[in-house]
C-alpha cells in the first residue's frame, strides 16, 4: 500500500524532506519505522531514538504500536511545543 509520510521540525530538516509517498507492507507504525531505518544511514540516525519522537496516523496522535490498516497518512515529529 501507498502511504503519505510527513516529517516536521528537526526531523524534517535532518531528512531533508517534509513529505514523501512510501510503498510499504508495514502493519504498524513500529514496522514502518523499521522499514524507514533500513533505507540508509540518514534515516537510521534520524529514527535512532524513538523516545524523542511522536507519531500520528491520519492526523490523530498514536502510540508506536498503532495499526496502519487503511491509513492514508502517517506523520513523525518531535514532542510538540505549542502555546
Amino acid at each position: 500500500m501507498k502511504i503519505d509520510v510527513h516529517y516536521f521540525a528537526w526531523l524534517r530538516e535532518r531528512l531533508g524532506t517534509g513529505r514523501e509517498t512510501v510503498e510499504t507492507e508495514a502493519g504498524t507504525v513500529d514496522e514502518l519505522i523499521d522499514e524507514l531505518r533500513a533505507r540508509d544511514e540518514g534515516y537510521a540516525h534520524a529514527f535512532s531514538d524513538t523516545g524523542a519522537l511522536r507519531a500520528a496516523v491520519d492526523q490523530d496522535l498514536v502510540e508506536f504500536d498503532a495499526r496502519l490498516d487503511g491509513a492514508r497518512e502517517v506523520a513523525f515529529f518531535p514532542p510538540m511545543t505549542g502555546g
Partner: peptide, 12 residues
C-alpha cells in the same frame, strides 16, 4: 492551555 502546549502539533 495545558493541552495546547503538548497535544497541538506546533514546533517553535
Amino acid at each position: 492551555m495545558d493541552y495546547l502546549k503538548s497535544r497541538a502539533p506546533f514546533w517553535k
